[in-house]
């Protein structure tokens, strides 16, 4: 009897029981629905965001009564009118959009050579070094990185102290627009490189050699061979950097010191300083729309690039 028991170990019995349960609640004839069942938890989880959007839309249609601090029961579009006409929000929106465009351009200029060198180098050591130098800040988070820049660039920061040693009067290096742009570029670099690298790996190195042997110098090879073939990477990186910098909160808040607010900061202020939830929700909804339009536009024009997550299509 004992021999039989060892011949059929406990693990198998458990698996048998589990298979039995699985077969009872999900019989084989449901098989075609299995992928949908597997997707269900993710769909439900992301559904929380959809619920959130509905709540935001609801709040955006209610106006704040400034005498009672109550929100109206009936809907009106007064908040949207205010959001579109108040000059402050226009300034903030303009500032964020221009910043997003500049940051995207600058980030891609620096991310491309980084990704290229990382993919093409023959030295595994250099590749690992570049990867670690990329992931270390990526994994540290925005607040700590912005804090690092405060130490370097602050009014009593290292740069100003160093300038003082050589007798130059301290300069105001933070709490201005360039400081925010600089902080954003630093924040976005890892994202951009990680989106570009797979696209560059997909380009066979022989193509570059072929272009070279046909007489193209490296600049022409880049312009006519590498850059066009890396397009999916540029789309992925561009979309990610554009939307993330357009909607960033921490960098403008910490390095802008309140004087360089972006849209996200204006939304936060409406919720937690002015306590006008309706107007804040309106701005949030408009930002979501702006972001979606930008992403949709890029995808419609160029496809999803390296952002696609489904099966690879030949």
């Amino acid at each position: 009897m004992r021999a039989a028991r060892t011949a059929y170990p406990l693990k198998w019995r458990i698996m048998d029981a589990l298979e039995g349960v699985a077969a009872a609640i999900w019989p084989a004839r449901f098989r075609r629905a299995t992928p949908y069942l597997m997707l269900l938890p993710a769909v439900l989880l992301v559904g929380l965001l959809v619920l959130g959007l509905i709540q935001i839309a609801d709040a955006s249609l209610r106006t704040l009564d400034t005498t009672t601090f109550q929100f109206s029961d009936d809907y009106s579009i007064a908040n949207f009118r205010r959001a579109l006409t108040e000059p402050l929000f226009l300034v903030v929106a303009q500032r964020s959009l221009i910043a997003a465009l500049i940051v995207t351009a600058v980030t891609l200029v620096f991310a491309f050579p980084y990704a290229y060198l990382m993919v093409r180098t023959r030295s595994p050591r250099l590749r690992k070094f570049l990867l670690i130098a990329l992931f270390l800040p990526f994994f540290i988070g925005q607040v700590v990185r912005a804090y690092g820049w405060l130490i370097i660039l602050g009014n009593q920061g290292m740069v100003n102290e160093a300038l003082g040693v050589v007798g130059i009067a301290p300069m105001r290096l933070i709490y201005n627009y360039p400081a925010v742009l600089f902080g954003l570029v630093q924040y976005m670099l890892p994202f951009a490189v990680l989106m570009l690298a797979p696209a560059l790996t997909a380009i066979p190195e022989e193509l570059e050699a072929a272009a070279g042997s046909l007489g193209a110098n490296w600049v022409r090879t880049f312009i006519h061979v590498v850059l066009p073939l890396a397009r999916p990477g540029f789309i992925g990186a561009g979309v990610v950097v554009l939307t993330l910098s357009l909607t960033d909160f921490a960098v403008p808040a910490i390095l802008g010191g309140g004087s360089q607010d972006f849209i996200a900061n204006a939304i936060y202020d409406q919720f937690f300083r002015t306590s006008d939830q309706g107007l804040g929700a309106t701005l949030a909804l408009m930002l979501v729309a702006l972001g979606s339009i930008l992403v949709g536009l890029v995808f419609a024009l160029f496809g999803a690039g390296t952002l696609a997550m489904g099966r690879s299509r030949a």
């Binding site: 965001l49 959130g52 909607t247 804040g280 972001g291």
Partner: peptide, 27 residues
Amino acid sequence: FEKSIQIYLLLPFTIPLIGSGIGLMLV
């Protein structure tokens, strides 16, 4: 509906963080 499901599952990236955060805060 693979394409639609993909777009739907990318919502966390396309909705700005401040939007997601405030939406979840309200929910």
